[in-house]
Amino acid sequence: MEVRTIKVFTTVDNINLHTQVVDMSMTYGQQFGPTYLDGADVTKIKPHNSHEGKTFYVLPNDDTLRVEAFEYYHTTDPSFLGRYMSALNHTKKWKYPQVNGLTSIKWADNNCYLATALLTLQQIELKFNPPALQDAYYRARAGEAANFCALILAYCNKTVGELGDVRETMSYLFQHANLDSCKRVLNVVCKTCGQQQTTLKGVEAVMYMGTLSYEQFKKGVQIPCTCGKQATKYLVQQESPFVMMSAPPAQYELKHGTFTCASEYTGNYQCGHYKHITSKETLYCIDGALLTKSSEYKGPITDVFYKENSYTTTIK
């Protein structure tokens, strides 16, 4: 009895394709271990004539594949690729409408935090270190965002349907971005203890939790000093293409032309909904596939993004 075979390709990165001759009487799992086709788990399936010449994702289970996976995804987590594939199996079914010149995501599976993050990423200057993220990001900007969303979920250790947080998501993504040249110098002034300067680099240099107003941050924000008295913390120097200011959701007025974009969060910790506000020729609110415009805006804002380049204080 002759062994019926077909020729397929296996890959971990969709760049390096490895030619395989597979036995049609055995499952993919018996031949390769966990195997995925377009995100779908085909591990328990036997090869079919229609699979001839198709590319299958496999887990990096030998040295060659491990090197290829690390170079593309910059992670050695053995569960990463499987999590990416199972997320992709959902995100490829989502709709990605162009809204006001940006790629958004039609609401499904509690994905409003991903839509808000995706919209924000198209408006701030950011370059990702893992080629996987950078490639998928370019495709997302062009309207094909399924891979990018699935990668975000995998890097953030999230599953489809789980509630997510924009600030946490951005923080994970910033860790995989090139923020080497970003720098922030802060000064804390206390009447009792004097003053202390701190220099922050990388992710810490672009994120701040405690106030939404970048102007206020430049002037000074009140913080408790270690001595128990009130101290003032203010920005001395900022070198970065953008800054992200966050605070627990509270009524906040966004003035046209003073910011790049913002995240609105309605609801409580267990259950809520994100919308995205962007400042173009007027203010726009993007909620999944829905767009509304207004000249002014007041609502429960939790993150505001500002364009920056270089700032030095005039406070002496």
Rank of each mutant, 00 (worst) to 15 (best):
N16L: 13
M245T: 05
H256P: 08
G33R: 00
L37W: 10
E239K: 10
S213A: 05
G299D: 03
Q123A: 00
A231W: 02
D63T: 12
Q197G: 09
D303C: 13
M24K: 03
A262V: 06
V243W: 02
P78L: 15
T91K: 06
G33H: 00
Y155T: 01
L121K: 04
K298I: 15
P47A: 08
D38M: 10
E71K: 15
N111L: 00
V58L: 09
L163S: 10
V8T: 06
S171M: 15
R4C: 09
V206N: 04
W94A: 00
Y137W: 04
C190Q: 04
Y208M: 07
R167E: 07
A142L: 10
Y28C: 02
C261D: 03
Y297I: 06
V99Q: 04
E52G: 10
M207Q: 09
K218I: 06
Q196G: 07
C112A: 15
K293N: 11
I124C: 08
Y36M: 03
C261W: 02
F80D: 04
K293G: 10
C182K: 09
K54N: 13
C285A: 11
M170G: 00
K218N: 02
V42A: 08
V3P: 14
F128E: 00
K54I: 09
Y28Q: 01
Y284E: 00
A108N: 05
D303I: 07
S171A: 13
P78Q: 08
T11L: 02
Y172D: 06
L235A: 05
M209C: 12
T64H: 08
D303S: 09
K293H: 05
E239W: 06
T5H: 15
A146D: 08
T292D: 09
K307E: 14
S171D: 09
K316E: 14
V160Y: 04
T103Y: 10
Y269R: 15
S294I: 14
C156L: 12
L88G: 01
Q20P: 01
D287H: 02
C261K: 05
L114I: 14
Q175M: 05
E71V: 08
V189Q: 10
L179Q: 05
S246Q: 05
K183S: 08
Y284G: 06
L254F: 04
T55N: 12
M245L: 09
V221W: 07
T55V: 09
S279K: 03
T199Q: 13
N187A: 11
A146L: 03
T75F: 01
N187P: 06
T64R: 14
L114W: 09
Y96H: 04
T199E: 15
M85P: 00
K7P: 13
T120K: 04
V304Q: 02
V185D: 01
E168D: 13
E125R: 09
N147A: 13
A154I: 02
I105R: 00
C227G: 02
I45M: 09
Y155L: 01
D287F: 00
T103D: 05
A150S: 01
G220T: 04
E204I: 01
V22L: 11
V42M: 12
D23F: 12
G143N: 00
T282H: 12
K191A: 14
D77A: 06
A142S: 12
Y84M: 04
E144S: 14
A231C: 12
E168A: 13
N49S: 12
P131M: 04
N89F: 10
Q31P: 01
E2F: 12
P241H: 03
D13P: 01
N129A: 08
A132H: 08
G39N: 05
V58W: 06
H90N: 07
D109I: 00
L235G: 02
A145R: 01
R139K: 10
K158H: 08
D62S: 14
N178H: 09
T232N: 05
V243D: 08
Q122E: 03
R184K: 07
Q238S: 04
G267E: 15
I223T: 12
M207T: 09
A136N: 06
V185A: 06
M24F: 11
T198M: 07
G101D: 03
Q197F: 07
Y138L: 13
N49K: 10
G101F: 00
L121N: 06
T302S: 13
C285Y: 07
A108E: 14
T103E: 03
A69I: 09
A231K: 10
G164V: 07
Q98H: 06
F148V: 02
A247I: 01
T43C: 10
G257D: 13
S240H: 09
F32G: 03
Y234T: 11
L163D: 11
I223W: 12
V166G: 00
H48P: 09
Y214S: 07
F148N: 00
P300K: 14
I105S: 00
I45D: 15
C182T: 05
K219Q: 10
L254W: 03
F56R: 01
N157K: 10
Q216Y: 08
K93Q: 08
T91P: 02
R184G: 10
Y252E: 08
K307D: 11
V189W: 09
L88D: 00
M209G: 10
A250F: 08
S86H: 12
L283W: 06
H176N: 09
A177D: 00
R141V: 15
G210F: 01
E296Q: 11
K307C: 12
K275G: 06
I45R: 14
Q20Y: 08
K127M: 05
F305W: 12
I301N: 07
Y214L: 09
A140N: 03
K219C: 05
L212D: 00
T75M: 09
R66F: 10
N157H: 15
L102A: 05
K92N: 14
N110L: 00
Y96W: 01
E144Y: 12
T211C: 14
A154Q: 00
T19Y: 10
Y84R: 04
D109Q: 15
L59G: 09
D287G: 04
E239H: 12
Q270T: 15
T192R: 14
F148T: 03
E239A: 08
S294Q: 12
F70T: 14
L290S: 14
A177G: 09
T103G: 02
V67I: 07
S104L: 05
K44R: 06
T278M: 15
N100A: 11
H276G: 05
K54T: 12
L153V: 09
R83L: 05
C193V: 06
T302C: 14
L163C: 09
A142Q: 15
R184E: 03
N178I: 07
L102R: 00
F70E: 13
A289I: 03
M24S: 08
V166A: 13
I105W: 00
C112R: 07
P34H: 11
Y269F: 14
N100T: 13
S295C: 13
G29H: 10
G164N: 00
I124V: 06
G272D: 03
A231Y: 03
G164T: 00
K183I: 11
Y57P: 01
M245P: 04
L114G: 05
S25P: 01
T91I: 04
R184V: 10
T313C: 13
Y137I: 06
D38W: 09
L65W: 07
K218Y: 06
P224R: 12
E296D: 15
K54D: 11
H18T: 14
V185Q: 08
G267L: 15
M207Y: 06
A205C: 04
G143T: 03
L163W: 13
F259L: 05
T55G: 02
S295Q: 12
H48T: 08
K54H: 15
H48Q: 13
Q122L: 08
E281T: 02
G33P: 01
T169K: 03
R83Y: 00
V42N: 06
C193A: 01
T43K: 08
L81I: 15
V42I: 06
V243K: 08
K158E: 00
F259A: 05
L290P: 01
S295K: 14
L118R: 00
Y269T: 09
L291N: 11
N111Y: 06
V304C: 06
Y72H: 10
V166N: 05
A146C: 06
S86E: 15
Y284Q: 13
R139Y: 08
N49A: 09
